[in-house]
Design a protein around this nucleic acid. Structure first.
Lengths: 238, 238
DNA sequence: AAAAAATTGTCGTCCAGGCGACAATTTTTT
DNA sequence: AAAAAATTGTCGCCTGGACGACAATTTTTT
């Protein structure tokens, strides 16, 4: 057990690594044991898996769809910490930590989640130390991303922040089409704004500008990057 | 094992909870086993425990002193993610994740650390699942703090950010003296600036202003908060 | 297909706060 | 104790980008 100390996400730049797909990283028998504890729940678009303030009795695994994890700020702004994609665990922090939920988990499209009671999950981890380790990796991975977002926020102007966001997302959720990289995530300008901490209008402006310059195009809310190299050249801090 | 699902830090506001003191949360025998694996190392003020780019073969526990964990931005700015205090673990993320260090760990004052090879620590965790859980709690705790910092950064003006920083720090590292709370951390304006993502001059200005208004005083780099309640009233987003 | 709702595009105004430039003070080194 | 280095205090200028206000377009609902 506990073999394999390799980087969990096979991406060029480890900095852009996203929280990893747990399912693909644990042994089939461990997965089977996990499934045995789980209840399946379907979540409609826009529905919440949980909200800030809820007690937080469960841990979730996403099987399909996309879930937005965000914190609501005092002024009503949404700060999106990350998107969860299939295979990822979420709602872990509060469960491990105790206390109520501090973030909101809202689905962006119809989603399916595995739902496991925290006490059961705790016992499960105790008897599956390899999974414990994978979970730690996932947590670490997210910490890195948060740290990175923090640095971005402090260091970069809006233009660079948006560009880096796209590069980061494309590392895990982009597909190459010739020279181009297509992001297969539908995002509104507002959502992008909430991820980089800026105003919606500014996102519109920056994006139009990048389109103008031929660095990217947008096809029904899906961003297509002409060339990642070219794109990254347009950020102030390469 | 794995009992106790209570909040790890006994603080009024869980949001201001800092990464927890591991030592105090594990059983004495687990601690003894840990010690057996460790090498003690002394770090002078200003010296690095590790730097970004280093391979990252060890996990560290701080026994005494204070260590600053920060990321250097592209423009040479330091972004301080957190301070480590005695009892805390650090350098875990990269070790769990694989790949080199992404952050710098520099001691702020003479420090003593326990140093454990990652492979040994991995094995140790496997056979001490209670500790695994505590480590997860510590990671979760830090994630919360980072998430919080992110929201602060996006939502609050500099004045509120500084105030919230002080309140956050005072929750774990302040001592009550009558009505006052004294922060027992020596910090320069530059360090504060690096923690809230602003310019040093702005910190000077904000702090002078708060002194003027009698909300706090500073005694050789140590901040004394006249009254936390009063202080928090001076932030825009209460 | 029409109506309602959400998203995108475009301007112009305005100000928080970054940053350079020093001077004054405090701390550290020699 | 003197010199060097670090930290704090103060100003003023200048700009990135927030935000309000609409219009245009696209998507969703009925």
């Amino acid at each position: 057990m506990f073999e394999g100390f390799d980087p969990p996400c096979a991406v060029a730049d480890p900095v852009f690594t996203a929280p990893s797909d747990i399912f693909s990283r644990i042994a089939p028998e461990d997965f089977a044991d996990l499934l045995a504890l789980a209840t399946v729940r379907h979540i409609d678009k826009g529905e919440f898996v949980f909200r800030a303030g809820d007690p937080g009795r469960n841990v979730y695994f996403l099987r399909g769809g996309r879930v937005k994890i965000y914190q609501a700020s005092a002024l009503g702004r949404e700060v999106i910490l990350w998107f969860c994609f299939p295979g990822e665990i979420f709602g872990l922090t509060e469960v491990v930590q105790g206390g109520g939920r501090v973030v909101n988990a809202q689905s962006c499209e119809r989603a399916e989640v595995l739902c496991i009671a925290r006490t059961q999950f705790k016992d499960y981890l105790e008897s599956h130390s390899a999974v414990s380790f994978v979970v730690m990796q996932a947590l670490s991975c997210r910490m890195r991303v948060l740290g990175d977002m923090l640095v971005n926020l402090i260091d970069d102007d809006v233009n660079s922040r948006i560009i880096k966001l796209m590069l980061r997302l494309s590392a895990c959720h982009g597909s190459r089409v010739g020279d181009e990289v297509h992001l297969n995530i539908r995002m509104t300008h507002q959502e992008i704004a909430d991820m980089v901490g800026t105003a919606r209008q500014t996102v519109t402006k920056v994006l139009s500008d990048l389109k103008q310059r031929g660095v990217l195009s947008i096809e029904n809310h899906r961003i297509r990057i002409r060339s990642p190299e070219l794109l990254s050249e347009h950020s102030r801090t390469a």
